[in-house]
Write a protein that binds this DNA or RNA. Structure first.
Length: 298
DNA sequence: AAGAAAAACAACCGCGCTTCA
DNA sequence: CTGAAGCGCGGTTGTTTTTCT
């Protein structure tokens, strides 16, 4: 028998998600988790395919996501990682807690790419463009690199990336790329006075790097992005969540989700098999509270 | 003030990889 | 061992918002 399509094209809703759909999906996932995405929309009462639900959840509804523009430090980290990894957005995203591959990819295409071009740097190879920023009417591909070579030249890229990152020394082989960036372009550690609060607030986002992040959930490792991100931004809930208001959250089953017992939605939750409430160290027991006036977590 | 163009954001599509029966 | 099923990733497209003329 042939492979079943991921969803019936007919009768499936497409396009932007409505608040109601978001609410249904969040409510379902937080109360039941997801065992397989295919059945999620059916059980949640959505006319969406499972793939669409997964995308919506991972990119926009997951409570551990940061929103808003990438900080300068995050941006630099993305550039550095891209120099080593190429367009492996999920790998890059794994180093940026609270950021999704889609978000980083979009940010790259809309912001960073242009910024690098303005600086005279080829965003693909991270090599200096032949022509200075002066207007090259036809985009002249640097003659020495073929497109095929571009992702096959980690060493060369890294050398240039190192220059790009101002003696960042980013270059190592492709096998173990994850250490250098942190060492080279890591933002300065947060002031000691705020370290504790970072563990509480920033860690909400950093420690919850989503599913399979390789970033250690410890407070110290949150330096990748946390220092440059204000605590408020880092702990704000994704819009669709506070969009519901607390009533909506409670209705959707959120009320029982941050108890001191941590006995929230168990089962096969989508956060990498981790109890989701371990992801919010400051949320449950006497930690952060929800400011109903401001509509965000404190 | 209106229209056009550009930019930014959100979502979809198809392919490849992994898992499991 | 084989093939179906599910999931995740990267590329691309569509839509909305902002800026410019």
């Amino acid at each position: 028998m042939g492979r079943q399509p991921c969803c019936d094209k007919v009768g499936m809703k497409k396009g932007p998600w409505t608040a109601e759909e978001d609410q249904k999906l969040v409510g379902f996932l937080l109360t039941h988790g997801h065992c397989c995405w295919r059945v999620v929309p059916k059980l949640a009462g959505l006319l969406r395919c499972g793939k669409s639900c997964r995308l919506r959840w991972t990119n926009y509804l997951r409570p551990d996501l940061k929103r808003g523009l990438l900080s300068d430090d995050e941006e630099r980290l993305v550039i550095d990682l891209h120099a080593q990894l190429g367009n492996r957005w999920s790998k890059i995203a794994a180093q940026l807690p609270g950021r999704t591959d889609n978000e980083i990819k979009n940010h790259w295409n809309t912001h960073i790419r242009k910024k690098l071009l303005r600086m005279g740097i080829d965003p693909v190879t991270h090599l200096p463009l032949q022509e200075p920023p002066a207007p090259p009417p036809p985009p002249p591909p640097p003659p020495e690199q073929e497109p095929d070579d571009q992702e096959e030249e980690p060493q060369q890229q890294e050398q240039q990336a190192g220059k790009l990152m101002q003696e960042g020394g980013a270059g190592e082989d492709d096998v173990a790329p994850m250490v250098q960036p942190h060492e080279t372009i890591m933002a300065p550690p947060p002031p000691p006075t705020t370290a504790a609060s970072n563990c509480g607030s920033a860690a909400v986002s950093s420690a919850s790097a989503g599913s399979a992040s390789v970033v250690s959930p410890s407070c110290s490792s949150s330096s990748a992005s946390a220092p440059a991100v204000t605590g408020v931004e880092a702990t704000e809930w994704p819009e669709p969540v506070y969009l519901f208001g607390m009533d909506g959250i409670m209705d959707a089953g959120w009320a029982g989700l941050f108890p001191s017992t941590g006995a929230g939605a168990g089962g096969c939750f989508g956060l990498g098999g981790v109890d989701p409430f371990d992801q919010y160290p400051g949320v449950g027991v006497g930690g952060a509270g929800f400011d109903q006036d401001d509509g965000h977590w404190m």
